[in-house]
C-alpha cells in the first residue's frame, strides 16, 4: 500500500470522482484517517456547494424579452396579388366591352338557370363567411391564451 498521503489535488479529484485517482491511492485513502478527514471535508464542501440556492431574476424575463422583440411584418405575397389585379382588370374590360351581350345572354336564359348560378354562389359565400369567423375565433383564443 502507498504510505504517502494524497496531495490536495488528488484529494479534490477523488472527492469529485471516485474513479479519478489510481487504485493504489484509493487504497491508501481507505485506511488513512488523516486523508479521510481531508477527503470528507472536500466531499462535504462539494455537496454544500451543489445545494446552495441559485440566483434568480425577480421579474418575468421571458415576458420582457418577448415584449421587446420587433414584430415581423408579414411578407407581401406578390404573385397572388398580381394575379388578383390581372383578374379584376380582365373582368372590368370584359364587362365594359361586352356588357350588352352579357345582359342579353342572362336575360335570355330560363329562370331556373338563374337559381343554378345564384344559389351555389350564395352557398360559397356563406361557407367562406363561416370559415372566416371560425379562423378569427381561433386566433383570438390563441392570443388570449398567451
Amino acid at each position: 500500500m502507498n504510505t504517502a498521503h494524497l496531495t490536495e489535488a488528488e484529494l479534490q479529484l477523488y472527492a469529485d470522482d471516485m474513479e479519478a485517482i489510481s487504485l493504489n491511492l484509493r487504497e491508501h485513502a481507505a485506511h488513512c484517517p488523516h486523508c479521510q478527514v481531508k477527503l470528507e471535508n472536500y466531499r462535504l464542501m462539494n455537496s454544500t456547494l451543489k445545494a446552495m440556492p441559485t440566483p434568480a431574476f425577480d421579474f418575468d424575463l421571458a415576458e420582457q424579452v418577448l415584449a421587446s422583440i420587433p414584430v415581423k411584418k408579414a411578407p407581401v405575397a406578390w404573385v397572388p396579388l398580381l394575379a388578383a389585379i390581372t383578374g379584376v382588370l380582365l373582368v372590368a374590360v370584359m364587362t365594359s366591352g361586352y356588357a350588352r351581350q352579357i345582359v342579353a345572354l342572362f336575360s335570355a336564359l330560363p329562370k331556373v338557370w338563374g337559381y343554378v348560378l345564384i344559389v351555389p354562389a350564395l352557398v360559397l359565400l356563406l361557407v367562406q363567411l363561416i370559415a372566416s369567423v371560425a379562423e378569427h375565433q381561433r386566433k383570438m383564443h390563441l392570443l388570449l391564451s398567451k
Binding site: 490536495e8 489535488a9 481531508k38 445545494a51
Partner: peptide, 29 residues
Amino acid sequence: LANAGEPAENETESRLLAKELNETMNQAV
C-alpha cells in the same frame, strides 16, 4: 496553495461541521 493544505507537524486538519456549513458557505464563496 497545494502546500498550504498539508498539515504542519503535530497539527491535523480539523473536520468541517456540516451543521453550520450551509450558513458559512455563502459567506465563504
